[in-house]
């Protein structure tokens, strides 16, 4: 018996098309990045990567990601908790608002922050009087990175927590558990995989963010230049190998992230069949 829409011709055509497209649009560019990075040998690649400015960009990028994740973690869990465990007017609206960072172009987001917190901005003027500089400094980069990544964790948690309901937490409370104990021993273990998955996505986005960061950072070498910005700068300086060396680092982080994600998914599917 053949299933509807499962004729061998169609199947071969679809699989073939998928393979060709994957190769052309995903695999080939990835190979090209590493090929370009190592075009002049490993030593040149190493020289570029260990350049003082590039090293600073790596640390800045990783540092920003390391600060972004805990902020998004707290924000995401609190928001998901609020939306799935309480009924209040405006709940739907809040759920829609979470998606704003996804809907808005990152460049626009950066621009808004610049207009608000920049030297002549609404809040910026006051901040300037207090001698606090947010824009064109790492706090600004952190702010826009948090903005573009904050929905990831909440978005992962909300459907899960909705489907799990609050029965287990109610059971814990009737058994005498306090609020924090309930969260630590009942809620957290139930959402830990979704949480980790959200963290991986957040990290990937935080490391790779270009648009919003490029507006607010000023891309000062050795100061506010992140790895994605570094790629662009080196490329504009006609240092192709240098640009691709930084790009290769970014690609490597992305690949590691993907591997972690795939590992989690594999684990999750295994847990479903063998609880």
């Amino acid at each position: 018996m053949q299933r509807i829409g499962d004729s061998p011709g169609v199947r071969r055509l679809l699989i073939g098309a998928a393979l060709v497209l994957t190769a052309l649009f995903l695999l080939l560019p990835l190979v090209a990045i590493f090929a370009q990075a190592f075009a002049k040998g490993v030593s040149v690649f190493w020289e570029n990567v260990s350049d003082a400015y590039t090293l600073h960009a790596i640390w800045l990028t990783l540092g920003i990601a390391a600060l972004t994740i805990p902020i998004c973690l707290v924000f995401g869990v609190a928001l998901a908790w609020l939306i799935t465990r309480f009924a209040f007017p405006g709940r739907r609206l809040l759920q829609t608002l979470i998606d704003i960072p996804f809907a808005i172009s990152p460049v626009v987001a950066g621009l808004i922050y610049l207009l608000l917190y920049g030297r002549n901005g609404w809040v910026g003027t006051w901040l300037d009087a207090q001698d606090i500089q947010l824009m064109f400094a790492w706090p600004g980069i952190l702010m826009v990175t948090v903005f573009v990544t904050c929905p990831f964790i909440a978005r992962e948690l909300i459907p899960l927590m909705q489907s799990q309901g609050s029965r287990e937490e109610e059971a814990a409370v009737t058994l005498g558990a306090g609020g924090f104990t309930t969260f630590r021993r009942v809620t957290l273990p139930n959402i830990r995989w979704a949480l980790l998955y959200g963290v991986i996505l957040t990290n990937a986005r935080a490391v790779g963010e270009f648009g919003a960061v490029s507006v607010v950072s000023g891309a000062i070498r050795g100061k506010t230049n992140t790895l994605p910005l570094n790629v662009q700068q080196l490329y504009q300086d006609y240092n192709t190998v240098g640009a691709f060396s930084s790009a290769a680092l970014l690609a490597l982080i992305a690949l590691l992230t993907l591997a972690a994600k795939a590992g989690l998914e594999w684990r999750a599917s295994r847990r479903e069949t063998h609880p």
Partner: peptide, 15 residues
């Protein structure tokens, strides 16, 4: 949590 009750849920609500 301070009422000293036992509650059994319809869907069991086991951890």
């Amino acid at each position: 949590r301070d009422r000293r009750i036992g509650f059994v849920f319809q869907d069991y609500a086991l951890f």
